[in-house]
């Protein structure tokens, strides 16, 4: 086994798709917010909240599917809060978002400890099991890695299609993109800019929250402190890398996850004497490099970060 052979193992590709899933949800969520002109730095906290609330729902006796819906709902509430600050009050989107992350992650930990005060070893739930798609999963080579995943991973790919379709082929998507590019023109068309932005932030936050829920309900079976571990920030970088395009966001998340899955396997090769911390750094270094590479070509939404106030002309 060497560096290249890893790429031809089914385990590598299965892991790539698994690692990519929360990133796909998070990146699409952030992308939807930003296409409407609102940066959502609440993402890291909202993902933590999703991880906690979805898990807690199932732990308290709910089923997995309703757990995801519950996580999405809680994420949407925080999205609503963020849009209250960043859209309606027009506060600095950076500062409001950081505030949301602080609030959402501290509340997640508080509620977790509140409901399970004595748990020393993290209690577990029965997470999603992998669901081989009949027929396709028997295909040679690609069957196991691509079609023997958990339902949430399939869901992530469906969400990419849905976001792409809605954004580019429906009036709603056009309205979202207009409010992100030129809110004054959008308003002149009779579009309620504040409502559209709020809707985008709420939906986007719901997606982020589902991405967090994947961690506790599918990838693992328990909630740990600090388990989101910067994934939200990586999603913010991936949105820039993807130039705010859902298809490229999917590619970016897969590329990123692929390198992550690869480095984990390289670490275990015999004769590798690089300290493990440098491998763990790889995702963060990679995100920075990706941003540097793409920054020249970044076609960011023109009205990103610009608050909109009705009747104000700038």
């Amino acid at each position: 086994m060497d560096f290249i052979e890893i790429l031809f193992t089914a385990g590598f590709w299965a892991a790539t798709l698994r690692i990519a899933t929360p990133l796909i949800f998070g990146t699409l969520g952030e992308l939807v917010c930003e296409r409407a002109g609102v940066l959502n730095l609440g993402i890291e906290g909202i993902m933590t909240m999703g991880a906690m609330s979805g898990w807690m729902w199932v732990y308290m006796g709910g089923d997995l599917v309703s757990g995801i819906l519950f996580a999405a709902f809680i994420g949407m509430l925080f999205g609503l809060l963020h849009s209250l600050f960043a859209v309606y009050l027009g506060l600095s989107q950076h500062v409001a978002g950081i505030g949301i992350t602080m609030l959402a992650s501290s509340l997640s930990y508080f509620v977790f400890r509140m409901l399970l005060p004595t748990a020393t070893t993290p209690p577990k739930i029965d997470p999603f099991q992998s669901y081989p798609i009949p027929g396709l999963s028997d295909l040679p080579y690609v069957g196991t890695p691509l079609f023997t995943q958990t339902p949430m991973t399939y869901g992530a790919f469906v969400v990419v299609l849905v976001v792409w379709y809605v954004l580019y082929s429906t009036p709603v998507g056009l309205a979202v993109r207009m409010t992100g590019e030129n809110p004054i023109a959008a308003e002149a068309q009779g579009i309620d800019v504040l409502a559209v932005r709020t809707g985008a932030v709420v939906v986007g936050s719901g997606l982020m929250s589902v991405g967090g829920a994947f961690l506790t309900m599918s990838a693992f079976d328990a909630f740990y402190f600090g388990m989101v571990n910067g994934r939200g920030w990586i999603c913010v970088a991936l949105v820039i890398f993807a130039s705010w395009n859902p298809g490229k966001a999917l590619l970016g998340a897969l590329l990123f996850a692929g390198i992550d899955a690869w480095q984990v396997r390289v670490q275990q090769l015999p004769g590798i004497n690089i300290p493990y911390q440098f491998f763990l750094m790889a995702p963060y270094v990679l995100s920075i490099v990706a941003m540097i590479v793409m920054s020249r070509r970044a076609l960011y939404p023109k009205a990103l970060l610009v608050p909109f106030r009705r009747g104000e002309r700038t």
């Binding site: 730095l41 950076h94 571990n229 910067g230 920030w233 990586i234 913010v236 970088a237 820039i240 750094m281 963060y284 270094v285 995100s287 920075i288 941003m291 540097i292 920054s295 020249r296 970044a298």
Partner: peptide, 14 residues
């Protein structure tokens, strides 16, 4: 290069 500093500073923490 107009690289957004929010993300770079955050990732440098890790």
């Amino acid at each position: 290069l107009k690289v957004d500093e929010v993300v770079t500073t955050l990732l440098l923490n890790f």
